[in-house]
């Protein structure tokens, strides 16, 4: 394949990254439609913050299934929210600021994901 197009323009390189991001934004969005809305309903409709406490959280995380669901939500949301912010940053900044903010977002995403994973993975199961 030639590196110059017929129009005399340099061929774009590495384009599949943007495609992958575009696609994953939609997939995680669908995932979040179920998990995040479900989470909100559980914590605000089926239950209420006033009756929630550490014990309530621990009880819910008493099952591996719930922990898995919440961890999936964490995964989706980390990608979707931070890549979404990347879109905003890439729209309104350029040059060095854009690079710095993008890196900060990637770093922030790592921290949030690690933190969340740690909580989900390490919180002790309640004593039966």
């Amino acid at each position: 394949m030639p590196t110059i197009t017929r129009a005399g323009r340099a061929r774009p390189q590495g384009s599949s990254f943007e495609l992958a991001v575009w696609y994953l934004m939609r997939l995680t969005g669908l995932g979040l439609f179920v998990t995040a809305l479900g989470h909100f309903l559980i914590t605000h409709l089926l239950s209420d913050p006033s009756i929630q406490d550490v014990a309530w959280v621990s009880e819910r995380w008493g099952s591996i299934a719930w922990r898995t669901v919440d961890w999936l939500m964490l995964t989706f949301v980390t990608f979707h929210a931070f890549m979404g912010m990347r879109v905003v940053v890439h729209d309104y900044t350029r040059g060095a600021l854009k690079t710095v903010l993008t890196m900060a977002l990637y770093l922030g995403a790592l921290v949030i994901f690690a933190l969340g994973t740690m909580v989900v993975a390490t919180l002790p199961f309640p004593v039966a």
């Binding site: 929210a81 931070f82 979404g84 912010m85 905003v88 922030g108 933190l115 969340g116």
Partner: peptide, 18 residues
């Protein structure tokens, strides 16, 4: 979207407190 992103930062931190 931006508002939700900001909340998520808080929310993961508060759940970390557990």
């Amino acid at each position: 979207g931006v508002a939700i992103w900001a909340f998520i930062l808080l929310h993961v931190l508060d759940i970390w407190l557990v």
